[in-house]
Design a protein around this nucleic acid. Structure first.
Ligand code: FES
Ligand code: FES
Lengths: 146, 146
DNA sequence: TGAGATTCAGATACTTTTATCTTAAATTAT
DNA sequence: ATAATTTAAGATAAAAGTATCTGAATCTCA
């Protein structure tokens, strides 16, 4: 069950983080990603294609081809990825699903949620992929399968 | 786009809140709910059935039948509804979709998310349906359609 | 008792998301 | 040039979530 982000978005975050673990400029194939991260091959392919189209990744065909970060890892925030894949609707919609979300039309948790939402936003904006990669470097993450 | 909770869950919250606006014990039909809240009839029927099965609502067939709260409004928290419909997976799963979520296996935002998650949990546990109803009594909410 | 209203239950359909399959295009190395 | 490898792209399928349809069961009231 996805909490806030779609599965696509989760895969994207994981894959981009994996790319950030590689030496700058080195290309990584879908095959390697899919094997290491246990993500469906063609599904991941499309996600990465999408991110490449949006400039967050660069891609190259052929042998020795693959994907690499399109920007320095420290310049890509989690929010960049989330926004590219899921959009930023979670910033504007009522968390309880009421049709309008505004201070002139608040549900019972509007103010409360607003604070949490802002905190989550800051969390996404203030974390970059380099930090993600660092956290992932710990041995626990290498071999875990779902 | 649902943020954290499924559409079913959002409908449930809205419907239960509506019931809490009624005099204690009064039954409300799906027809009325569906009309006032603009929720698909049979879909809502199944959701309420589910909540009734779980004791959060009581139901009665026949004319003058319908649904009513199964407990005093102030004893039903938002979390009761959320847990009944969506479960409590959002309390245990990694927000970025990594396969494990624990302090021995943290992703880069694990601690940060943990705080927000706890805050959201408190928000759900500390708000009851009576408060929801009070917030909804404001005229803005009466006639809004999606 | 019978008609009407309502929930209950199961089947079916639609929509969105996730996943797979197939072929084409590009790149590299032989 | 040719073969091998990889991404690109489009079609298709499978799964999950949402919504609808139909008839049965239950209850109320005339
Ligand atoms: S109205 Fe519900 S979060 Fe703003
Ligand atoms: S591991 Fe990501 S939130 Fe806990």
């Amino acid at each position: 069950m996805s909490i806030i982000f779609s599965r696509q978005c989760e895969y994207a975050l994981q894959a981009v983080t994996y790319l950030a673990l590689k030496p700058v400029g080195e290309k990584t194939s879908i095959k390697e990603l899919t094997k290491k991260l246990d993500i469906p091959y063609h599904f991941l392919g499309k996600i990465l294609q999408d991110l490449a189209y949006k400039g967050l990744l660069i891609s190259q065909k052929g042998p020795t081809g693959g994907f690499a970060l399109g920007l320095p890892a420290r310049d890509i925030t989690l929010f960049h990825i989330v926004e590219a894949i899921d959009g930023s609707g979670f910033m504007t919609n009522c968390v309880l699903g009421f049709p309008e979300c505004s201070s002139s039309n608040p549900c019972a948790v509007h103010d409360s949620w607003g604070r949490h939402r802002e905190g989550i936003y800051q969390m996404l904006v203030n974390r970059n992929i380099a930090e993600m990669a660092r956290a992932m470097k710990k041995p626990e993450y290498v071999a875990i399968r779902r």
